[in-house]
Protein backbone atom coordinates (compact mmCIF):
# COMPACT_ATOMS: atom_id res chain seq x y z
CA UNK A 1 0.00 0.00 0.00
CA UNK A 2 2.80 2.38 0.94
CA UNK A 3 4.64 1.45 -2.26
CA UNK A 4 1.60 2.36 -4.35
CA UNK A 5 1.33 5.66 -2.54
CA UNK A 6 4.98 6.38 -3.32
CA UNK A 7 4.47 5.63 -7.00
CA UNK A 8 1.35 7.74 -7.25
CA UNK A 9 3.00 11.02 -8.40
CA UNK A 10 4.96 9.22 -11.14
CA UNK A 11 1.83 7.42 -12.37
CA UNK A 12 -0.09 10.68 -12.33
CA UNK A 13 2.61 12.36 -14.42
CA UNK A 14 2.51 9.52 -16.96
CA UNK A 15 -1.26 9.89 -17.19
CA UNK A 16 -0.90 13.64 -17.74
CA UNK A 17 1.72 13.13 -20.47
CA UNK A 18 -0.47 10.59 -22.29
CA UNK A 19 -3.42 12.96 -22.07
CA UNK A 20 -1.30 15.82 -23.43
CA UNK A 21 -0.05 13.62 -26.27
CA UNK A 22 -3.57 12.61 -27.13
CA UNK A 23 -4.79 16.18 -26.97
CA UNK A 24 -1.95 17.41 -29.18
CA UNK A 25 -2.60 14.78 -31.88
CA UNK A 26 -6.33 15.50 -31.80
CA UNK A 27 -5.82 19.28 -31.94
CA UNK A 28 -3.38 19.16 -34.87
CA UNK A 29 -5.40 16.55 -36.80
CA UNK A 30 -2.12 14.79 -37.60
CA UNK A 31 -2.51 12.06 -40.17
CA UNK A 32 0.84 10.45 -39.49
CA UNK A 33 1.47 10.78 -35.74
CA UNK A 34 -0.52 8.15 -33.81
CA UNK A 35 -2.71 8.64 -30.77
CA UNK A 36 -2.02 6.56 -27.64
CA UNK A 37 -4.94 4.37 -28.59
CA UNK A 38 -3.39 3.71 -32.04
CA UNK A 39 -0.26 2.55 -30.21
CA UNK A 40 -2.31 0.18 -28.06
CA UNK A 41 -4.08 -1.35 -31.03
CA UNK A 42 -0.79 -1.55 -32.92
CA UNK A 43 0.78 -3.42 -30.02
CA UNK A 44 -2.16 -5.82 -29.88
CA UNK A 45 -1.78 -6.44 -33.58
CA UNK A 46 1.90 -7.33 -33.10
CA UNK A 47 1.03 -9.59 -30.21
CA UNK A 48 -1.63 -11.42 -32.19
CA UNK A 49 0.50 -12.21 -35.22
CA UNK A 50 3.39 -13.23 -32.95
CA UNK A 51 6.02 -10.93 -34.45
CA UNK A 52 6.51 -9.00 -31.20
CA UNK A 53 7.66 -12.05 -29.27
CA UNK A 54 9.97 -13.07 -32.08
CA UNK A 55 11.62 -9.62 -32.11
CA UNK A 56 11.91 -9.44 -28.34
CA UNK A 57 13.47 -12.91 -28.22
CA UNK A 58 15.94 -11.99 -30.99
CA UNK A 59 17.07 -8.84 -29.20
CA UNK A 60 17.35 -10.53 -25.80
CA UNK A 61 19.34 -13.44 -27.24
CA UNK A 62 21.83 -11.06 -28.83
CA UNK A 63 22.19 -9.08 -25.62
CA UNK A 64 22.53 -12.31 -23.65
CA UNK A 65 25.28 -13.62 -25.91
CA UNK A 66 27.24 -10.36 -26.22
CA UNK A 67 26.86 -9.40 -22.57
CA UNK A 68 27.60 -12.92 -21.33
CA UNK A 69 30.77 -13.03 -23.39
CA UNK A 70 31.73 -9.60 -22.06
CA UNK A 71 31.27 -10.74 -18.43
CA UNK A 72 33.44 -13.80 -19.05
CA UNK A 73 36.22 -11.62 -20.43
CA UNK A 74 35.86 -8.48 -18.30
CA UNK A 75 35.77 -9.98 -14.81
CA UNK A 76 38.96 -12.09 -15.03
CA UNK A 77 40.70 -9.32 -16.99
CA UNK A 78 39.62 -6.68 -14.48
CA UNK A 79 40.79 -8.81 -11.56
CA UNK A 80 44.14 -9.38 -13.25
CA UNK A 81 44.59 -5.70 -14.08
CA UNK A 82 43.63 -4.72 -10.55
CA UNK A 83 46.00 -7.19 -8.92
CA UNK A 84 49.05 -6.98 -11.19
CA UNK A 85 50.38 -3.43 -11.52
CA UNK A 86 52.25 -4.23 -14.74
CA UNK A 87 49.09 -5.50 -16.42
CA UNK A 88 47.30 -2.31 -15.41
CA UNK A 89 50.06 -0.05 -16.69
CA UNK A 90 50.18 -1.91 -20.01
CA UNK A 91 46.47 -2.36 -20.74
CA UNK A 92 44.79 0.60 -19.09
CA UNK A 93 45.94 3.28 -21.59
CA UNK A 94 44.64 1.22 -24.52
CA UNK A 95 41.31 0.70 -22.80
CA UNK A 96 41.04 4.38 -22.01
CA UNK A 97 41.42 5.14 -25.74
CA UNK A 98 38.99 2.43 -26.87
CA UNK A 99 36.36 3.11 -24.21
CA UNK A 100 35.10 6.53 -25.45
CA UNK A 101 34.60 5.24 -29.01
CA UNK A 102 30.85 4.94 -29.50
CA UNK A 103 29.78 1.40 -30.33
CA UNK A 104 27.97 2.89 -33.31
CA UNK A 105 31.35 3.84 -34.79
CA UNK A 106 32.25 0.15 -34.74
CA UNK A 107 29.34 -0.80 -37.01
CA UNK A 108 31.22 -0.64 -40.35
CA UNK A 109 34.07 -2.71 -38.97
CA UNK A 110 31.66 -5.15 -37.34
CA UNK A 111 29.98 -5.69 -40.71
CA UNK A 112 33.34 -6.04 -42.42
CA UNK A 113 34.52 -8.65 -39.95
CA UNK A 114 31.35 -10.48 -39.07
CA UNK A 115 29.00 -9.82 -41.97
CA UNK A 116 25.33 -9.02 -41.55
CA UNK A 117 24.35 -12.00 -39.39
CA UNK A 118 23.95 -12.23 -35.62
CA UNK A 119 27.68 -12.04 -34.99
CA UNK A 120 27.86 -8.30 -35.77
CA UNK A 121 25.41 -7.07 -33.12
CA UNK A 122 26.82 -9.55 -30.62
CA UNK A 123 30.27 -8.13 -31.26
CA UNK A 124 28.97 -4.57 -30.86
CA UNK A 125 27.27 -5.45 -27.58
CA UNK A 126 30.43 -7.14 -26.39
CA UNK A 127 32.56 -4.09 -27.26
CA UNK A 128 30.17 -1.68 -25.58
CA UNK A 129 29.68 -3.58 -22.33
CA UNK A 130 33.15 -5.05 -21.78
CA UNK A 131 34.90 -1.75 -21.02
CA UNK A 132 32.69 -0.46 -18.23
CA UNK A 133 32.89 -3.87 -16.55
CA UNK A 134 36.69 -4.03 -16.83
CA UNK A 135 36.99 -0.53 -15.40
CA UNK A 136 34.65 -1.25 -12.48
CA UNK A 137 36.30 -4.57 -11.63
CA UNK A 138 39.79 -3.05 -11.74
CA UNK A 139 38.66 -0.15 -9.57
CA UNK A 140 37.08 -2.69 -7.23
CA UNK A 141 40.42 -4.42 -6.70
CA UNK A 142 42.23 -1.10 -6.29
CA UNK A 143 39.82 0.06 -3.61
CA UNK A 144 40.05 -3.04 -1.39
CA UNK A 145 41.01 -1.54 1.92
CA UNK A 146 44.60 -2.26 2.93
CA UNK A 147 43.55 -3.35 6.41
CA UNK A 148 41.77 -6.38 4.99
CA UNK A 149 44.72 -7.42 2.84
CA UNK A 150 47.02 -6.95 5.81
CA UNK A 151 44.81 -9.09 8.01
CA UNK A 152 44.91 -11.82 5.35
CA UNK A 153 48.69 -11.48 5.17
CA UNK A 154 48.91 -11.68 8.95
CA UNK A 155 47.05 -14.99 9.08
CA UNK A 156 49.36 -16.36 6.40
CA UNK A 157 46.57 -17.86 4.33
CA UNK A 158 47.15 -19.49 0.95
CA UNK A 159 46.74 -17.52 -2.27
CA UNK A 160 43.62 -19.55 -2.95
CA UNK A 161 42.02 -18.53 0.34
CA UNK A 162 43.15 -14.94 -0.18
CA UNK A 163 41.35 -14.79 -3.52
CA UNK A 164 38.29 -16.78 -2.56
CA UNK A 165 37.64 -15.21 0.82
CA UNK A 166 39.05 -11.70 0.50
CA UNK A 167 39.66 -10.41 -3.02
CA UNK A 168 36.65 -11.86 -4.86
CA UNK A 169 34.03 -11.03 -2.22
CA UNK A 170 35.53 -7.58 -1.71
CA UNK A 171 35.30 -6.83 -5.43
CA UNK A 172 31.93 -8.43 -6.09
CA UNK A 173 29.76 -5.39 -5.33
CA UNK A 174 31.80 -3.33 -7.82
CA UNK A 175 31.55 -6.12 -10.40
CA UNK A 176 27.79 -6.06 -10.00
CA UNK A 177 27.77 -2.27 -10.50
CA UNK A 178 29.84 -2.79 -13.65
CA UNK A 179 27.40 -5.45 -14.85
CA UNK A 180 24.50 -3.10 -14.31
CA UNK A 181 26.19 -0.39 -16.37
CA UNK A 182 27.28 -2.92 -19.00
CA UNK A 183 23.84 -4.42 -19.41
CA UNK A 184 22.29 -0.95 -19.71
CA UNK A 185 24.72 -0.03 -22.48
CA UNK A 186 24.20 -3.40 -24.16
CA UNK A 187 20.46 -2.82 -24.33
CA UNK A 188 21.02 0.63 -25.84
CA UNK A 189 23.39 -0.76 -28.44
CA UNK A 190 21.39 -3.78 -29.55
CA UNK A 191 18.55 -1.59 -30.81
CA UNK A 192 20.95 0.62 -32.76
CA UNK A 193 22.77 -2.38 -34.20
CA UNK A 194 19.54 -4.01 -35.32
CA UNK A 195 18.51 -0.90 -37.21
CA UNK A 196 21.41 -1.29 -39.62
CA UNK A 197 21.50 -4.66 -41.27
CA UNK A 198 19.32 -7.21 -39.59
CA UNK A 199 15.93 -8.76 -40.15
CA UNK A 200 14.83 -9.35 -36.59
CA UNK A 201 14.91 -7.68 -33.21
CA UNK A 202 13.17 -4.65 -31.74
CA UNK A 203 15.48 -2.22 -33.56
CA UNK A 204 14.65 -3.85 -36.87
CA UNK A 205 10.96 -3.84 -35.94
CA UNK A 206 11.01 -0.08 -35.48
CA UNK A 207 12.85 0.62 -38.74
CA UNK A 208 10.64 -1.83 -40.60
CA UNK A 209 7.47 -0.23 -39.26
CA UNK A 210 8.61 3.14 -40.57
CA UNK A 211 9.85 1.92 -43.95
CA UNK A 212 6.87 -0.32 -44.63
CA UNK A 213 4.18 2.34 -44.68
CA UNK A 214 4.92 4.88 -41.98
CA UNK A 215 3.45 2.80 -39.15
CA UNK A 216 4.43 5.24 -36.40
CA UNK A 217 2.05 3.53 -34.00
CA UNK A 218 4.36 0.51 -34.19
CA UNK A 219 7.46 2.73 -33.91
CA UNK A 220 6.21 4.17 -30.63
CA UNK A 221 4.99 0.77 -29.43
CA UNK A 222 8.51 -0.56 -30.06
CA UNK A 223 10.09 2.34 -28.19
CA UNK A 224 7.88 1.86 -25.15
CA UNK A 225 8.55 -1.89 -25.12
CA UNK A 226 12.30 -1.23 -25.31
CA UNK A 227 11.99 1.10 -22.34
CA UNK A 228 10.01 -1.40 -20.28
CA UNK A 229 12.37 -4.29 -21.02
CA UNK A 230 15.37 -2.06 -20.19
CA UNK A 231 13.73 -1.21 -16.89
CA UNK A 232 13.16 -4.86 -16.02
CA UNK A 233 16.76 -5.77 -16.94
CA UNK A 234 17.98 -3.05 -14.60
CA UNK A 235 15.64 -4.22 -11.85
CA UNK A 236 17.09 -7.71 -12.20
CA UNK A 237 20.59 -6.34 -11.68
CA UNK A 238 19.33 -4.38 -8.70
CA UNK A 239 18.16 -7.64 -7.15
CA UNK A 240 21.76 -8.88 -7.49
CA UNK A 241 22.90 -5.81 -5.56
CA UNK A 242 20.63 -6.87 -2.72
CA UNK A 243 22.06 -10.38 -2.37
CA UNK A 244 24.38 -11.33 0.49
CA UNK A 245 27.40 -11.04 -1.81
CA UNK A 246 26.88 -7.34 -2.31
CA UNK A 247 24.71 -6.25 0.58
CA UNK A 248 27.55 -5.76 3.06
CA UNK A 249 28.82 -2.90 0.92
CA UNK A 250 25.66 -0.86 1.23
CA UNK A 251 24.52 -1.75 4.73
CA UNK A 252 25.77 0.52 7.49
Amino acid sequence: MARIKEMLPALALIAVLIAAWWGAVAATHSVIFPTPWDVVTGTLELLENGTLWRHIAASLLRVGAGFGLAVCVAVPLGLWMGWVAGAYRTLNPIFQILRPISPIAWIPIAILWFGVGDASPIYLIFISSVFPMVVQTTAGVHTIEKRYLRAAENFGVSRRTLFRQVVIPAVLPQVIVGMRIGLGVAWLVVVAAEMIALHSGLGYMIMDARNAGNRYDLVIAGMIIIGLIGLSLDSTMRILEGTRWARWRYAH
Binding site: F155, G156, Q165, L172
Partner: peptide
Protein backbone atom coordinates in the same frame (compact mmCIF):
# COMPACT_ATOMS: atom_id res chain seq x y z
CA UNK B 1 54.20 -11.05 9.33
CA UNK B 2 52.90 -14.50 10.20
CA UNK B 3 50.16 -16.02 12.30
CA UNK B 4 52.37 -16.43 15.38
CA UNK B 5 51.85 -12.72 16.04
CA UNK B 6 48.45 -11.27 15.18
CA UNK B 7 47.95 -7.52 14.91
CA UNK B 8 44.65 -6.08 16.03
CA UNK B 9 44.42 -2.59 14.61
CA UNK B 10 42.49 0.44 15.71
CA UNK B 11 40.19 0.54 12.65
CA UNK B 12 39.51 -3.17 12.88
CA UNK B 13 39.67 -5.60 10.00
CA UNK B 14 36.76 -7.98 10.47
CA UNK B 15 35.79 -8.94 6.91
CA UNK B 16 32.35 -7.41 6.34
CA UNK B 17 31.49 -9.93 3.62
CA UNK B 18 31.94 -12.92 5.91
CA UNK B 19 29.81 -13.96 8.88
CA UNK B 20 31.28 -13.98 12.37
CA UNK B 21 31.87 -17.73 12.09
CA UNK B 22 33.49 -17.43 8.66
Amino acid sequence: PDSRGILISQQGSVFPWLTVRE
